[in-house]
Design a binder for these strands. Structure first.
Lengths: 385, 385
DNA sequence: CGTTCATGGAGAAACGTATCTCCGGCCTTC
DNA sequence: GAAGGCCGGAGATACGTTTCTCCATGAACG
């Protein structure tokens, strides 16, 4: 009966340690071959149900757990997805610092788990050895800068890459982004209708897509309607710099009567700056900022915010990535396909497919002059302007 | 020259695909053996520097990247650490929902990366196949419930487990927690000194360590000083229930003149409830809540908070875990040790080693009668940078 | 009665690395 | 002049799966 012990000669020579049971042990205990065990547990092959259940029972009894490492080595699939956020400045990473990232990451994790994948968080600035030590089936990159060497290398080594934020010059498999241009135009229009005559912008100095597209849309709008641009830029990763920039913006001689702040803390920064200058919101100053935080529902006054809907973005990004990962095998043919490495190929040339997702403007008191329901009466210009 | 191609017979028979270069290819190109390549790249063995650098150069030229899966299989080490948060309720996971988790996770990720490990986020409620599909060197468990089956299984299969939150009956390798008892006593004392006669508690209905220990400390204190306990409990994972409970607490006939709220949103909840009942803070009601959010520095009035210092916890937990992981091999002997599975053994019996970490009470106006001046974060003058 | 087929399953070859064992030279040393 | 000792490196094995290939058996069918 237990003659099967002779089959695995190697194990017979080694003294029996208290190792975890392997597939060989299960096969021996069940009196079948390794193949049968593998097929039974993975639901493959042609086996009568009786054999299947018997093998499963034996495996359960022995506490058998397949080795993830061996499976990964054999199948070329790890079930792991990298989630990378390009780090601003020196800090390890600004993860969860802004609500956008936190929400996006949470949604991405959920979506991945729902499809049987797990997410591993890897800052782009991590030591190279950490990256190459992990078998990744694909990677989500949040807001890659132009010519990101990390993305380029990943792509070259055959790992699918989907970016959150339209990539500049990086070759990605696909990308997802908000329609920042439409969002900014919508806000500017909203503020104009609320009576704004001179709309200012609080923006960043970094070159990521979000900052760039938003600022360009603002400048283009200014050019179109004939307003002189009024904006201040600051390094968005510096939490203290935002307050300073907000102050600068409201201290200008050509002080705007409405401001859109591109970053999450801008709302409170602008509100505080307005108080310092004795400006009432919304009477003297209309305010909108981009934020996922609901604290702006309870500020005094509540502040109109633009939500980028990070949950939707995170879910979409992960689903696109997994589609690419799993689509690889489907496209490589029938028999010899298995021999091919899981290298993603772009169909011909041309830009990678991108998806634009809408944003949502949550209108609150800060952008509604006086009566919240009628916008007919234009506000009087603040001070002398 | 390229006669080395004959050595790897397997590769010679298969038609040459455009696969990624393996260690064999490097060996062939450099005219050395696989062993030499491995040693040269990993800094092991005894090789002259000339050979080392030559092999490295060839590897670089071929764009060689070692297979993480193969290395993991061979060494039994993946460089991956699981980060598990027990899910409250139905939601996928409350990660990043509370600032505590977000901060703790961020610190843990940083600490892990600093030591060459990466973190993979895995809710305790994930499908079992996701868990067993990933080779984990160890796991951090946030606040495991009593008799957590997940922890038990992990521990049994030899994976080191370190928990954030003193475990009830789970066998963990080590644990870290705040000194909740001391923290609560400190708060109660602080409130008493501020003039409180009847201190109420807003607590949770769940059985996690934090809730349990804090509540018990409160009850013990009441018993000691002879005050009748005044508390309301609600399911902490329900964001709406907190406001209701806060309202209930202040509506009681034996209304407290000071309240400590165990959860992050309790501060605003209690403040809102106080307003509804026309209670002035801190004149009629002293307020403290446990929170990592700095919004309480700007509420009206600013609210005294207890910080659990999640960054410190996250860092400590990860370092303890990695110590355990890397300590395993050190303890298994010299020669035959390599054959042993990386199974962690507790030294004898007895409880697992635990570390208590201090908390920090940030005193603001809400718990100081009269004195409106805060001791932290003084207001910034308008003109200052 | 011979041929085909479907069924149930076994054997063995990978996957790509790390590492244990061993071996040939050359140099020293008595 | 022979016996170690060190240097530089090659061979082979094992890590634990998945999966390709192939075989034996018996039934169906002409």
């Amino acid at each position: 009966m237990t003659a099967a012990a002779n089959q695995n000669g190697r194990r017979a020579t080694a003294s029996r340690r208290l190792e975890r049971a392997g597939i060989r042990d299960v096969a021996a205990a069940a009196g079948v071959s390794i193949t049968t065990v593998s097929d039974a547990l993975n639901g493959k092959g042609r086996l009568p149900d009786e054999t299947r259940s018997r093998v499963r029972e034996v495996a359960e009894r022995l506490g058998y757990r397949p080795s993830a490492a061996a499976r990964t080595l054999r199948t070329g699939r790890s079930g792991l997805i990298g989630l990378t956020v390009t780090t601003y400045g020196e800090e390890p990473f600004t993860f969860t610092e802004f609500a956008y990232f936190a929400e996006m990451a949470r949604a991405a994790t959920s979506a991945a788990l729902g499809r049987g994948y797990a997410l591993v968080v890897l800052p782009a600035s991590s030591r190279h050895d950490v990256w190459s030590n992990i078998a990744l089936d694909g990677t989500v990159v949040i807001d890659p800068p132009d010519q990101d060497p990390l993305v380029t290398e990943l792509y070259r080594s055959g790992v699918p890459v989907v970016s959150d934020g339209k990539p500049g010059n990086c070759p990605v498999t696909a990308w997802v982004d908000n329609d920042h241009e439409a969002a900014v135009l919508n806000i500017l229009e909203h503020l104009s209708e609320a009576g704004a005559r001179r709309i200012g912008l609080l923006t960043g100095t970094s070159t990521d897509t979000y900052t760039r597209l938003s600022t360009e849309a603002y400048l283009a709008w200014c050019d179109r309607v004939g307003q002189e641009p009024v904006y201040e830029a600051y390094p968005a990763h510096d939490p203290a710099a935002g307050a300073v920039a907000a102050d600068r913006l409201l201290a200008r001689p050509d002080r705007p009567d409405a401001v859109y702040g591109l970053f999450d803390p801008n709302g409170t920064d602008l509100l505080a700056a307005a108080r310092r200058y004795g400006l009432r919101v919304p009477d003297d100053l209309l305010l909108v900022c981009c934020s996922e935080s609901d604290v702006y529902a309870n500020t005094e006054p509540p502040i109109t915010t633009l939500s980028l809907k990070p949950r939707r973005i995170g879910t979409t990004v992960v689903n696109l990535l997994i589609d690419a990962i799993e689509g690889v095998d489907a496209g490589t043919g029938t028999t010899a396909g298995r021999l091919f490495p899981p290298r993603y190929r772009t169909a011909g040339t041309g830009p990678p497919p991108g998806t634009l997702m809408p944003t949502e403007l949550i209108v609150r008191a800060s952008s509604q002059p006086r009566a919240p329901r009628t916008t007919v009466s234009p506000p009087r210009p603040p001070g002398e302007a």
